[in-house]
Amino acid sequence: MRLIDSKVLQEVRVVGFESGCRSKERLLQLGIVPGVILKIKRLAPFAGPLIVSIEGSDVVLGRGIAKKIIVEEI
């Protein structure tokens, strides 16, 4: 499953990234590392970005990036 397909406030575990994810380095730096649990907190309207809650901090990421993060339900 991709992160973008998960429901708001549903906790999921990061499995990996799709190839061609240009922001992978930054995602890793922000703590979005395979194995961590995160959840979508909020979606911006007009196909805007989403806020993801991870280990106590909030990260904003674009939908395109959320499409390239592979997650699994827990």
């Binding site: 922001s23 930054r26 922000l30 901090s57 909030d58 990260v59 990421l61 395109g64 990036i65």
Partner: peptide, 8 residues
């Protein structure tokens, strides 16, 4: 254009 990515 790259996408937004930062911590709030």
């Amino acid at each position: 254009s790259p996408e937004i990515l930062f911590d709030i």
